[in-house]
């Protein structure tokens, strides 16, 4: 009985109320039954009508009586405790045959999942709303003519602003020298020289980094015609690996609303390669694995790991 008190329900009144509901339902059924059957066969028309009306009134009165009784009882039943997180469904936990029908625990699980789903869907939708930028926006073709495309504001930043952001980043890191070129119109190409370790070519679109390629400090960055060579990969396996990881980093550091933060984060990450050949792996403690130094840098801690030693 103690459990019942906890829930705040008067079981006695509850069972009476259930009985009252049954009574109400049967009296209501009687009303409609009599209406359906219509007038009973009597000698005179007046007799028929009179008997029908009396019957109908009796039935309605009993409905009224039963309804009043139910209302009286319902005040006695009391409200189930509001403190229960799942309201009335919390009563399922009272089911003594928990082991056979684990309804309540399943319900809790489902509730948790649906909560989570809603939360994540909310996050995803807000992120997707920001991501109006498409990387291949100019490939839309014919449809672009019909519907004037909304240019994401961050794609049309003034050249001066881009220059400022890049030069500010360059000043932040003394061991990182950044040269800015604009070989094809407004898009910038950065030649980043990191100490005497590596050179990275960073191809930008406005303040977004489109692609990057990393080569050795002593490798050519210009092709034979004197132009910046943004295509050929490094001759050295170690820098081919670093290029792969740098491409991964570009996808990792994404913040469409604040492209300058992204460029800065990427440069901070790239700068951790200043000790590419000097730092042993943080997991296995060795310099080399399969002839390669630790080429992976953790995105958060910037710790060095071999490609196979990272988690």
């Amino acid at each position: 009985m103690a459990d019942v008190m906890n829930v705040g329900v008067n079981l006695e009144a509850f069972s009476q109320a259930i009985n009252a509901i049954q009574a109400l339902r049967s009296s209501v059924t009687r009303v409609f039954d009599s209406l359906k059957d219509g007038m009973k066969n009597k000698e005179t028309l007046e007799g028929r009508e009179k008997a029908f009306i009396t019957d109908f009134q009796d039935n309605l009165q009993s409905v009224n009586r039963d309804l009043n009784e139910l209302e009286r009882l319902s005040t006695l039943v009391g409200r189930p405790s509001e403190s229960h997180p799942l309201h009335n469904s919390g009563l399922l936990s009272l089911d003594p045959v928990q082991d056979k029908t684990p309804l309540y625990s399943q319900l809790l699980q489902a509730y948790k999942w649906s909560n989570k789903l809603q939360y994540h869907a909310g996050l995803a939708s807000s992120l997707l709303n920001q991501q109006s930028l498409k990387r291949s926006a100019n490939q839309i073709g014919a449809s672009a003519k019909r519907r004037p495309k909304v240019q994401p504001s961050t794609l049309v930043l003034p050249i001066q602003y881009v220059d400022d952001v890049i030069s500010r980043i360059g000043r932040m890191f003394p061991d990182l020298s950044i040269e800015l070129f604009r070989p094809n119109g407004t898009s910038a190409v950065l030649l980043v020289t990191l100490g005497k370790v590596l050179k990275a070519i960073v191809v930008m679109r406005s303040l977004f980094i489109d692609r990057t390629i990393v080569r050795g400090y002593h490798e050519n960055v210009h092709s034979e015609d004197g132009k910046l060579d943004i295509w050929s990969k490094s001759n050295y396996q170690v820098f081919q690996k670093v290029t792969d990881h740098a491409t991964t980093a570009l996808l990792h550091y994404q913040l469409p609303q604040m492209p300058d933060v992204v460029v800065r984060s990427f440069m901070t990450w790239l700068r951790s390669y200043i000790k590419l050949f000097q730092t042993p792996c943080q997991r296995c403690g060795r310099f080399l694995q399969d002839g390669l130094p630790p080429t992976w840098r953790d995105f958060r801690t910037l710790e060095a790991f071999h490609d196979t030693c990272r988690q």
């Binding site: 005497k196 050295y236 050949f277 000097q278 060795r286």
Partner: peptide, 21 residues
Amino acid sequence: EYCACVVPGDCWNLMKEFMQS
């Protein structure tokens, strides 16, 4: 020769580990 690096102070320990092998 460690072809990827030009600075002895950078890669000497790495080369030593390789030569040990």
